Simulated assay, not measured.
Amino acid sequence: MGDKYDYFKLLERARSKLPERVIRRERFEIPKADVIVEGRNTILRNFADIVSKLNRDQNHILQYLLRELGTAGVVDGRRAIFKRKLTGEEIDEKIDEYARIYVLCPECGRPDTVLVKEGRILMIECMACGAKRAISGKRVAKIQPRIDVRVGHEYDVLVEGVGGKGDGIAYIGDYTIFIPGVSRGSRVRVKIERISGKIAHGRVVR
């Protein structure tokens, strides 16, 4: 009886020395958006912290947010800058959607996943439970190849949004393209006239 009692005491003592994450599953908590509005721009000051928690490519996350929020934007160091006024709640909602689609395992709910391409299909694979599923649905964002947009070159684009001044917004790789005189959903050929960072302005080639 004494030996059995000593065994359980030793077991409890050993268990008490284990890290908390070994005893209890760590909760997956994404940092809340820390935003400030400057003029017509919204600055997400903790974008880098959110990217680190999601463990995904920052450009993939940014392109998803820009498309879903219907605006243009760029990464500036550890911050993301959106070209219209947004609330933290609006950004949080889209980040949560991104996590549900691209980060959390659809089977076990854990965030221990990676994105893999099989042919033309984007898959989410879980390192915790081994599940592997295709990502599907209208909200799936494409992982864009890195493309250098150049002044004077022409590109075929899909207008995915409309900016505050009425210009159409399209995306080429990491670049956000502003195009006057077009509507959302239009497919046009655009000639790039000027570039500043990852923001470009172009006109439709008739």
Score class of each variant (00 low, 15 high):
60 H>Y: 13
61 I>R: 00
62 L>D: 01
63 Q>C: 10
63 Q>L: 15
64 Y>C: 03
64 Y>K: 01
65 L>A: 08
65 L>C: 05
65 L>N: 05
66 L>P: 04
66 L>Q: 03
66 L>D: 01
66 L>G: 09
67 R>W: 06
67 R>T: 14
68 E>R: 12
69 L>F: 06
71 T>N: 01
71 T>I: 01
72 A>W: 03
73 G>V: 08
74 V>R: 15
74 V>F: 13
74 V>A: 08
75 V>T: 06
75 V>Q: 14
75 V>L: 15
76 D>Y: 14
76 D>E: 14
76 D>P: 00
76 D>A: 13
76 D>T: 12
76 D>H: 14
77 G>V: 06
77 G>F: 01
77 G>I: 08
77 G>E: 04
77 G>H: 09
78 R>I: 07
78 R>M: 14
79 R>W: 05
79 R>C: 10
80 A>W: 07
80 A>V: 02
81 I>H: 09
82 F>C: 07
82 F>P: 03
82 F>W: 08
82 F>L: 11
82 F>D: 05
82 F>I: 09
83 K>R: 15
84 R>F: 05
85 K>C: 09
86 L>C: 08
88 G>R: 09
89 E>N: 12
89 E>F: 10
90 E>D: 10
90 E>M: 10
91 I>Q: 11
91 I>H: 08
91 I>F: 10
91 I>N: 13
92 D>K: 09
92 D>E: 15
92 D>N: 15
92 D>R: 10
92 D>C: 13
92 D>M: 13
93 E>T: 15
94 K>W: 04
94 K>C: 08
94 K>G: 09
96 D>H: 09
96 D>L: 10
98 Y>G: 08
99 A>H: 07
100 R>D: 12
100 R>I: 00
101 I>H: 00
102 Y>H: 02
102 Y>N: 03
102 Y>Q: 02
102 Y>P: 01
102 Y>D: 07
103 V>L: 02
103 V>I: 11
